[in-house]
């Protein structure tokens, strides 16, 4: 059986909200290391995935691997019944056809129980090669949300040009054109300066509009703004976003979710006709 106790319902709510418009239904793969998920949208353009590590839960038990077929619209409805600061217990028996949720108020004065029916889903897992990207951009997630919103006012796609000087996002459309250039800011790249203490991947020191750029090769990539805007629904889960890109391959957009895991999207690029 699976039994996982999560201290903040808001994490689960946020993850489901940031995936449900891209994926209708998918398997949650549960093992003793945690809960993970991977699924493409119907047009096979974007892949959404997340990982919640067992260590990130207050208690976690999974006796054998389970694949739980979940419809996101159902899950979203159930999770709307939980308050953000509720404790959530997720429970599934082996070979069960339902997934159980218990929501406990922090002061333990209210306990709600819900269940959703599970689905049989033919899981098609894509094998994504482990790859080094030529460019890794890290910026505040709220700034990334604003950038995608702003670009969408003008165009349907955005071109990301990453070079030594910085990274430029540009778009054009019927009413005109626009671009935003972020220069590499060292304020979020001080891990090598010997200041120490800060954990890797922390957002410490990042200014609201700062952007750190690690570059091996210049990268130029055109991407659909419709999908990028969908990805920004994960922004409330994380202070920053990491965009990893190489020329002519899908971009990876990752939001770290506290210490528990991450939500990660892949988006196929626009290619020349």
């Amino acid at each position: 059986m699976l039994e996982a106790r999560l201290l903040q319902a808001s994490i689960l709510k946020g993850i489901v909200e940031s995936v449900k418009d891209l994926v209708r239904e998918a398997n949650f793969d549960c093992s003793d290391s945690g809960i993970s998920f991977q699924a493409m949208d119907e047009s096979n353009v974007a892949l959404s995935s997340f990982l919640l590590r067992a260590e990130g839960f207050e208690t976690y038990r999974c006796d054998r691997n389970l694949s739980l077929g979940v419809r996101f619209s159902s899950l979203s409805k159930i999770l709307k019944c939980a308050n953000n600061d509720d404790i959530v217990v997720i429970r599934a028996e082996d070979d069960a056809d339902v997934l159980n949720f218990v929501f406990e108020s922090p002061d333990e004065s209210k306990i709600s129980e819900y269940q959703i029916k599970l689905l049989d889903i033919d899981g098609e897992h894509l094998s994504i090669p482990e790859q080094e990207f030529d460019c890794v951009i890290k910026m505040s997630s709220s700034e990334f949300s604003k950038l995608c919103r702003d670009m969408t006012l003008l165009g349907q796609t955005v071109v990301i040009d990453a070079a030594k000087e910085g990274v430029k996002f540009s778009t054009y459309g019927d009413i005109g054109a626009g671009s935003v250039l972020y220069k590499h800011s060292s304020s979020i790249d001080d891990s090598s300066s010997g200041s120490g203490g800060k954990g890797r991947g922390g957002s410490g020191g990042m200014s609201a509009r700062g952007c750190s750029i690690e570059l091996r090769e210049p990268v130029s990539l055109e991407l659909s703004l419709k999908y990028l805007n969908n990805f920004t629904k994960a922004a409330p889960l994380s202070d920053y976003v990491v965009i990893s890109a190489s020329n002519e391959i899908p971009v990876m957009v990752q939001f770290d979710v506290g210490d528990i895991g991450y939500i990660r999207y892949y988006l196929a690029p626009q290619i020349k006709d």
């Binding site: 047009s43 353009v45 974007a46 055109e222 196929a268 626009q270 290619i271 020349k272 006709d273």
Partner: peptide, 14 residues
Amino acid sequence: KTQQSTLMSFFGTP
């Protein structure tokens, strides 16, 4: 002019 590619052309199904 560009067009949208799909992930299938980059990632394989095992």
